[in-house]
């Protein structure tokens, strides 16, 4: 969107034009395998780094000596959003989103797969894609406001990176076709590949969880109680909540007055 962004070479999502990312499939597999190994055990751990330096598993005989590393972080060529915002006096009782969403079908599939990898379904709580969180991500990055336009560059670059990292592995498949472990490994690799990759994954975590936990199932999952008129005085904490607090206070050497 900005001049600064345009100066950087846009990267294609395929290597077909000769200017984009060229990643040897076997090399891709090697660092991906490393990333998966690092990520598999403690998915709760820090983002897994790709194998550093010439990997032991690097295949001999690659004539073009491609870098034994994940794809370079692209800066997707992003057209500025020209739509109007909702203005300074929008209808508050019946809100509408005035700008069109802009992601294509494949991109939405990828976004949905990212959201579901970040926050997998659990028990009665549905996967993000089942309640349309990918459409919210689309709404967000299609908004004409400066913060969201900056996020648009970040998110579209991340999508380009993921496809660039995945496509050479198997023609005709995309990130969304991978199983959860492989998707997680690629996201970890994206986060470790570049500070912007880290920012991309963090942004997707923020967007996925922020949107999910403002949705009806998410609010239910949090156990939130409220947003409904009460009669009489505000009742305050329940006995159970106070008992928990008193335990916390004891642990801190504090006590509740009265």
């Amino acid at each position: 969107m900005s001049g600064e962004e345009r100066e950087e070479a846009p990267i294609a999502t395929t290597a077909a034009d000769g200017k984009g990312i060229r990643v040897d499939r076997r090399v891709t597999l090697s660092w991906l395998a490393g990333a998966m190994a690092a990520a598999a055990a403690p998915l709760r751990g820090a983002y897994a780094a790709p194998p550093a330096g010439p990997a032991a598993t690097a295949q001999p005989g690659t004539a073009t000596t491609p870098p034994d590393a994940p794809p370079a972080w692209p800066n997707a060529e992003v057209k500025a959003i020209n739509a109007s915002g909702y203005g300074t006096d929008p209808k508050m009782l019946e809100p509408t989103v005035p700008w069109p969403r802009t992601l294509g079908k494949e991109e939405l599939r990828t976004v949905a797969a990212i959201c579901d990898t970040i926050l997998p379904a659990e028990g009665q709580w549905p996967a993000p894609s089942a309640i349309g969180i990918q459409d919210f991500v689309d709404e967000w990055i299609s908004a004409p406001y400066p913060d969201q336009q900056a996020d648009r560059v970040l998110v579209l670059s991340g999508l380009a990176w993921l496809e660039a990292a995945q496509k050479p592995r198997q023609a005709g498949t995309s990130f969304a076709d991978l199983d959860e472990k492989k998707r997680a490994a690629l996201l970890h690799a994206a986060a470790a590949a570049d500070p912007k990759g880290r920012a991309f994954v963090d942004k997707m975590k923020f967007l996925t969880t922020g949107a999910y936990y403002t949705s009806e199932p998410g609010i239910g999952e949090l156990g939130y109680i409220g947003n409904e008129p009460l009669e009489g005085d505000y009742p305050g904490p329940t006995k159970e909540a106070l008992a928990h607090l008193d335990g916390v206070l004891r642990g801190m050497g504090l006590r509740r007055k009265g």
Binding site: R44, K205, F206
Partner: peptide, 14 residues
Amino acid sequence: HGWNSLNFDGFGPG
């Protein structure tokens, strides 16, 4: 509340 997700290392289960 989404910002709280950044205090969790990584993502996925947990």
